[in-house]
Design a protein around this nucleic acid. Sequence first.
DNA 1: TTGTAGGCGTTATCAG
DNA 2: CTGATAACGCCTACAA
Lengths: 354, 354
Amino acid sequence: MANMKQIAELAGVSLGTVSHVLNDTARVREPLRKRVLEAVRTTGYQPSQLARGLRRDKTNILAMIIPDILNPFFPGVVRGAEDVAFSNGYRLVLCNTDNDHGKEVMHLNALRTYLPSGLIVIPSDFSDLTAQTESYRRAGSAVVCIDRLPRNWDGDSVTINNADGAASATSYLIGLGHRHLAVITGPLHLTNSQDRLKGFKRAARQAGLEVPPNYLQETTFDRAGGYAKARILLKMIPRPTAILACNDMIALGALLAIREAGLHCPEDISLIGFDGLDLTETTTPQLSSVYQSSYQLGATAAQLALDRVEKKNTPVRHIILKTELRIRDSVAAPPSNVEVVAAATPKKLRKVAS
Amino acid sequence: MANMKQIAELAGVSLGTVSHVLNDTARVREPLRKRVLEAVRTTGYQPSQLARGLRRDKTNILAMIIPDILNPFFPGVVRGAEDVAFSNGYRLVLCNTDNDHGKEVMHLNALRTYLPSGLIVIPSDFSDLTAQTESYRRAGSAVVCIDRLPRNWDGDSVTINNADGAASATSYLIGLGHRHLAVITGPLHLTNSQDRLKGFKRAARQAGLEVPPNYLQETTFDRAGGYAKARILLKMIPRPTAILACNDMIALGALLAIREAGLHCPEDISLIGFDGLDLTETTTPQLSSVYQSSYQLGATAAQLALDRVEKKNTPVRHIILKTELRIRDSVAAPPSNVEVVAAATPKKLRKVAS
DNA sequence: TTGTAGGCGTTATCAG
DNA sequence: CTGATAACGCCTACAA
């Protein structure tokens, strides 16, 4: 691989001049400029990102820290960020924390010496991101927090409107005539879980509905959790006629529990998930869900990070994306309910903005 | 962030000595050694990966180029590679090509100047990896090709035993009594598609079965492709009693087509997919599939790359991973077939090594 | 407008 | 065993 010195010799100019034309950091006379560009072209010269990074105290690297790429919600986030990074000449380095705070810290430490321009983080459980990224911010890296926020986060962030999303699903069920609404939430130390629960409660309250405490089940964001808590809910008397699952994995587990209990969805019980993953299309029945664009989440975060690289002292931005209620086959009016308001099982996908 | 010079001053030794204790590149007397380590500890010093990379002509970066992280097969590959990378002190940079050869070349070019120690690639369609990675190999980067191989690939590689996997599924169906077997393959310019088809044909031939040419449908590795081709197959006379789909997405599409045709799986028609994705567990019926460990694919590739970083001149390795036939609810004996050999619908997951 | 030279933080070579 | 010192490739004052 050629270096600047060789380009300089080839073009018959000095090394500094080469740098100037490459970075457009000084006006260079056209003939020289041309010779340099020509030399670059023929040699296929590319500047060393390492040397440049060392010199500039910053590399064209965007680091992304997520819980686990195996969780089907995250690939979209990563892809969104990578697309924006790539089209701006940045590379994406990916780190999985498994929601382990210790691993998060290790990644944060290890990444620092690569001097990434930006850092996009989905904080792990009990993350103390604010403190842990202090050194990054001091070093001039843009830190963007997404999906959920750690305590006291005062930097840039991108989240979705969790409360409104959950509320829209809840209202929809209520509109269908449901009065016995249960909710299975994710871990309530996570802000997104909290907000979804808030939305659920708000919608219930607005409809004058009382939600008994045992209709509110907290669990992990996975199938096993949804399965276990749905089993509990299904044994209650009165049995809930509808369940809001706070993500699609929980909904999947709930669906299994419903089937195992000999019940039918949506005839006996309605179910709405959250996230709108692709796999909601391939279940039987197709799962209704509060859709959010994981891709846009990642893309927006990357853009935010790059923006801040450009202009350091811009005011902090907190972007909140919208959700979209996607009704498929897993919801219907409650069984034998005299108060039924809406029609029976919707068969086609309908979109309802939230 | 402290640098070596400061550590040296703090420890009252020379800069060279610090480097020596840090890299264990010379025996340093214990008292000095101790002072250096102490200085490192108190300052939280970490060596600059940029400076180190510049000097050593190589960074602790592993680059991974895949078609698209949104395709549910790839997150496992990425996670496997990241885990191995991380636990060896390497970072993973991720690139998506969308199977676009041009994008592959762009990523290859852009990554080069980061001097990654290794490069793990799932080649794009019509990739000319052998030529494109020449410069990497010359520069001392380990290049490992996985999942599918481009023409004339003579470097390290990790693949799975596609032929045996497909053959085991095919034989299983034949054992169940099926005589009208169809196959929906992925794009036949890909080596993995080719090999799966070979396995299918081999198993059929060994059973003395004739497969009519129109029972063999080629398409893209996605749901739309599987749906379209299955529709065609289901209209044929005689209608196939079993379909081998060469990946799970194709199988998903086929399942939809079967349902839409008013047929039942597995009573009317058996279906086996390939890959063994998680989503095969949440379909109705649960989908049988030839499982392969995407995680192991990625992890093995990363290990291979790191191994080669250690020992440059080791002979080329071509690792072939095994598959595992996972029979779930989507297979049964053919309808009203007097030649039935095995029992009817298996209800429990059975594992059959291939 | 162009060239020169110092330094970013390491590693590695070579004296002492 | 330890300490100077020269690169690695690039950017950027500063000088010409």
